[in-house]
C-alpha cells in the first residue's frame, strides 16, 4: 500500500496512477559514488519500488567532497551497503539490494537482468561499454551519465543503439576527470537529468536524449544537445 501523503508533491508532475506504479519498478544503479549517491537518493524519494545498488568500493576520504553517501562515519565501509542503510532512513517502502561487486563481462548479465532501467554511475569507460552491451542484450534501456570538473554529459541508450561508440571513440581511453577532478555540484546536476530520463522512459512521456548527448558546461553555461545519429 503506497502512502499518499509521502508522495503528495509527486502528484501533478506524475498522475496518481503513475505515482502508484512507481513502486512496481526495478532500477539498477551501477556505481554508488558521485552520481550514484544522488541517483539512489532521488529514486528512493520518488518512490521507486526496488533499487539494486552495485559497487565494490569502500568510501575513502577523497570521496567526501561530493559523494552523498559518504560521511566521516562511513569511511572504509562498502558504498553499496551504506546505500541500503541510507535508503532505510529516507524511504522504508523502498527495497534496496546492495551488490558488492565490480561490474564486468562475467557478472553483468546476472546483476542487470530483471530491471526496468539501468543507470550508469560508473567511473570507467570500459565498464560503460559492458553496461551498454549487456543492457542491449537484455532489452533494457540504459541511461548514461558522466562527469569531470565543471562538465557533464547525459544520453539515453535504448536496446540496439551503439551510442557510446560515438561518445567514446577508440582513441579516448580515459576522461578529463583524471586531470580536473570532480567537485560537489556537477554530479548532482547530471544525476538529476538522468533521473528525469528514467521517469520519462518508465512512463513513455516527454522527449528523451536518445541518439543525443546533452553536454553541460557549468563554467561557461553552455548546455548543448549534440545530435549523434
Amino acid at each position: 500500500m503506497v502512502k499518499i501523503e509521502r508522495y503528495r508533491k509527486n502528484i501533478g508532475t506524475l498522475t496518481k496512477e503513475e505515482n502508484e506504479k512507481l513502486s512496481s519498478f526495478r532500477i539498477c544503479v551501477v556505481g554508488c559514488g558521485g552520481l550514484g549517491g544522488y541517483i539512489i537518493e532521488m529514486l528512493a524519494r520518488l518512490g521507486i519500488g526496488h533499487i539494486t545498488a552495485v559497487d565494490s568500493d569502500v568510501f575513502e576520504e577523497s570521496n567526501l567532497n561530493r559523494q552523498l553517501l559518504s560521511n566521516t562515519e562511513t569511511l572504509g565501509k562498502h558504498k553499496a551497503l551504506i546505500a541500503k542503510d541510507r535508503i532505510r532512513l529516507v524511504n522504508n517502502q523502498v527495497e534496496l539490494t546492495p551488490v558488492v561487486e565490480r561490474i564486468s563481462d562475467s557478472n553483468a548479465e546476472s546483476i542487470l537482468k530483471g530491471h526496468d532501467v539501468i543507470i550508469d554511475a560508473v567511473d570507467s569507460i570500459d565498464a560503460r561499454f559492458v553496461l551498454q552491451n549487456v543492457a542491449s542484450k537484455l532489452d533494457i534501456p540504459f541511461v548514461h551519465g558522466a562527469i569531470a570538473g565543471w562538465y557533464g554529459q547525459i544520453s539515453t541508450i535504448l536496446p540496439g543503439d551503439n551510442t557510446l561508440a560515438k561518445i567514446y571513440p577508440d582513441r579516448c581511453k580515459e576522461g578529463l576527470e583524471k586531470e580536473i577532478g570532480n567537485p560537489s555540484f556537477t554530479p548532482a546536476m547530471v544525476a538529476s537529468v538522468q533521473i528525469a530520463e528514467v521517469i520519462k522512459i518508465l512512463f513513455k512521456k516527454g522527449g528523451l536524449l536518445r541518439n543525443k548527448l546533452l553536454y553541460v558546461d557549468l563554467l561557461e553555461h553552455d548546455y548543448i544537445t549534440v545530435d549523434l545519429h
Binding site: R128, Y151, G175, E177
Partner: peptide, 8 residues
C-alpha cells in the same frame, strides 16, 4: 570538438 568526460 568535445573532450572525453568519464567520471561517475
Amino acid at each position: 570538438i568535445f573532450p572525453p568526460v568519464g567520471g561517475g
